[in-house]
Design a binder for these strands. Sequence first.
DNA 1: GTGTTGGCCAGTCGCCGACAA
DNA 2: TTGTCGGCGACTGGCCAACAC
Lengths: 294, 294
Amino acid sequence: MKLPRGRATMKQSPASSGVAPAAAAAAASAGGAPPEGERKAPAINADLWYACAGPLVSLPPVGSLVVYFPQGHSEQVAASMQKDIDAHVPSYPNLPSKLICLLHSVTLHADPDTDEVYAQMTLQPVNTYGKEALQLSELALKHARPQMEFFCKTLTASDTSTHGGFSVPRRAAEKILPPLDFNMQPPAQELQARDIHDTVWTFRHIFRGQPKRHLLTTGWSLFVGGKRLFAGDSVIFVRDERQQLLLGIRRASRQPTNISSSVLSSDSMHIGVLAAAAHAAANNSPFTIFYNPR
Amino acid sequence: MKLPRGRATMKQSPASSGVAPAAAAAAASAGGAPPEGERKAPAINADLWYACAGPLVSLPPVGSLVVYFPQGHSEQVAASMQKDIDAHVPSYPNLPSKLICLLHSVTLHADPDTDEVYAQMTLQPVNTYGKEALQLSELALKHARPQMEFFCKTLTASDTSTHGGFSVPRRAAEKILPPLDFNMQPPAQELQARDIHDTVWTFRHIFRGQPKRHLLTTGWSLFVGGKRLFAGDSVIFVRDERQQLLLGIRRASRQPTNISSSVLSSDSMHIGVLAAAAHAAANNSPFTIFYNPR
DNA sequence: GTGTTGGCCAGTCGCCGACAA
DNA sequence: TTGTCGGCGACTGGCCAACAC
């Protein structure tokens, strides 16, 4: 199993590919009702998180062994700032190029402004292949997430125009949206959907036009404006196991968001990644990274 | 001289307070035409930068000695992320609590999204009070920036409402705006002003109403919307020495922008600040920090 | 089956002086 | 002197089916 294209350059160790055990899977997935009390973040829905992250993303379960590449991570941080790594960086001779780590915790997040999804992971370097660690690792095998009911549509010019609403593909509407009462003329209902921050969006869902079609009208433009969506971006509707409607977005790969931090120089960030890893490796102490799909 | 409330916790050394020499002052201020080729940033106008930063902010001139506090800087970075500093951070026994540094360069910046102003500085630790450094330091004394012609108005509810335009205080209009032709009925003209990113904004400036007053009408709402201004924020009009109009904003102190990076953990940032300073101190090599007024 | 367009209505934007603080 | 309001035009936001691919 691999984390295919993540900023954190982390791959699960070969020893832990396969199928996940029930316990580990529960900690990592936990569909509608997250089991563990998170910080103050409103406990992001895992199904929606994965749907927004895309089909290529899967996270290793808590308790598994993963391989962390400090240098690669550092380079990707630099790349995300569109900045080459300068010289003037101290070398960390005792820092191995890869660290075998025990994955202590994974918390799912979404940027409050852009809805970009990412995960925070706590890793602890392990320098012994002790029996216990291996067992954990063997337990923590690849598990396919139970496929959830959802659809994803790339927005057209009409969908994002102020001129009209959102055209729901027929199969998607029939599979995901609550059924309409076709005795009405025209059939219509009010939809409520929660986004990844648990904000509720309300839409008018109507079946009309010639030929007939499913449309979201009233409320749609507020969503497009609020999320700053453009043609080419995608929206995702998920129906969770409690028949609740969830709503996410996946932006078209735009120009790198250019998060030139204005807080910390890229050199300091680079050094921070390496020094944090070196310190953790020297002490076998846990450290925290962000894994950023994309 | 002090940098009163900056994230970077940097104060100019006592040896360098006083009046600035011509050479150093030229490098730091340079009204309309910045002297040095910058990176790719469009060379921010220094007068406008200072006007947006507010009257309490002044930057030490290039070539002066400054005192840098790594621990304080690190704490302020943590504070900007609304995150306490954890333990698990290595200690840097050879890192002094303050570093005397030569200020190599200062470049002015503004956040492309929020227009928040900040400065990037390159510092080099000096461990000897050599003659040369002292001379530089004595040369680089406090200099009052030549006061420029500008006005600053806090926006009212009417100014930011969609219902109308911007009411220009009379004295401000007469001092800063190009004079109207009062033979016209009503007197009116088109104004062009450049913001800190060199973007041109166009306004209709008209003198009308009963009693007569200066108003900005057409184009004003685009500016308010584009900059996401609200009542309580301020706008600043500057007339530079070439009679060009410059336009800046100063936001009311809102809730901390909460830049929880999603790229680097706060621990790594904390370590990055300290390790970068420690490395620079050990090698007398230059390092880069961001100074963030506010 | 679905993306785009013209029609059309209603709500808001935005320019104006009146008025008052 | 300048902040807010009622007034009113004009524009565009947004719902609709027609039509094309």
